[in-house]
């Protein structure tokens, strides 16, 4: 039985037309994802308010005595006044700055720390991997905000400390994600293919492995921004916020409201809604990104 195969399968040539690049595909999918669009709107509001705080805030956030303490919302003060007679809405608007700034810096720092650890771990492997991943296990065994509480408690209060604390709670997660995708990709078929057609390892890392690892990190970072906003406010609520008690910070503002729940319930809602909107924004965008960057998840 001597047989020869005749003809060429045209499959390869035809598949080519289907791929239009990961990012463009993802973007077009994201544009059709309604929850993600809604998330982006929330984030846009949040960021705009933070940037334009001096323009948008109707009053000086630290100027007290604008009226009676705990005055309920009125046409002059849409979110009412706090204990010292400061305009609650202006404070919430200025508070967006702190949340956004601390959130972005802490997630960026976390990404750097986690990225380095993850890249070393997944890239080098061996005992380096073992030691680093054990350290990551340890960090992850300390429940969420407790680690941040511990760090701020020891380093003392202050914005840099808060940022570092939140960064440290995120870093192990980023490290694990990056390591995981690096390990998975090292064995992935397309990497084997590009290696066998003779692409240099640096080229493989840049062209193939990084974009794939990045997608997972981008999703995690977006979701981490939501957690960061909540954690920063949580620290503020526990009295571990910015050391200057006058600073308009959402969590700290909520602490003030606990004292006057009966008299001034309006003090919960303005900062509360601000936190919820920003968290929802980042959560929805993160979920949307995950779905659009990973076509396999498409329902």
């Amino acid at each position: 039985m001597a047989t020869t195969v005749q003809g060429v399968r045209p499959g390869v040539a035809i598949e080519e037309r289907a791929s239009r690049g990961l990012w463009r595909d993802a973007l077009s999918r994201l544009r059709r994802n309604k929850p993600a669009i809604f998330g982006m709107i929330c984030i846009t509001i949040f960021v705009t308010v933070a940037i334009l705080a001096p323009v948008l805030a109707p009053y000086d956030p630290n100027k007290g005595g604008l009226g009676p303490s705990f005055a309920p919302p009125s046409s002059e003060h849409l979110a009412g006044l706090d204990k010292l007679g400061r305009d609650e809405l202006s404070r919430v608007v200025w508070g967006a700055r702190i949340s956004l700034f601390v959130g972005i810096v802490s997630v960026t720092v976390g990404l750097c720390i986690g990225g380095i650890v993850g890249a070393l771990s997944g890239g080098i492997g061996g005992w380096v991997d073992t030691v680093l991943m054990r350290a990551v296990d340890v960090m992850l065994s300390i429940p969420g905000i407790l680690l941040a509480i511990g760090i701020v408690a020891w380093l003392g209060q202050g914005l840099p400390q808060i940022m570092l604390a939140v960064a440290f709670t995120n870093a192990p997660i980023f490290a694990r994600i990056l390591r995981g995708s690096l390990l998975a990709l090292r064995e992935a078929e397309f990497v084997t293919v590009s290696r066998s057609i003779g692409s240099g390892s640096g080229r493989i890392l840049l062209r193939h492995m990084l974009p794939n690892a990045l997608t997972a990190l981008i999703v995690a970072a977006t979701l981490a921004l939501a957690t960061a906003v909540i954690d920063v406010a949580g620290l503020g609520f526990l009295g571990l916020g910015p050391p200057d008690p006058r600073t308009a910070e959402w969590g700290t503002m909520l602490t003030d409201s606990t004292e006057a729940l009966r008299r001034a319930p309006h003090l919960i809602f303005a900062p509360g809604i601000a936190i919820i909107i920003s968290a929802i924004g980042f959560n929805l965008l993160g979920d949307g990104l995950r779905e659009s960057l990973d076509p396999r998840l498409k329902r």
Binding site: A226, A233, S257, T258, L261, G272, I276, A279, I280, N283
Partner: peptide, 22 residues
Amino acid sequence: SLLGISVPIFVLGLTLQYGFSV
């Protein structure tokens, strides 16, 4: 479930206190 992960404990807690207690 989206609200669940987006509403911080202290905001929910204070709201519950205000609604159900006060």
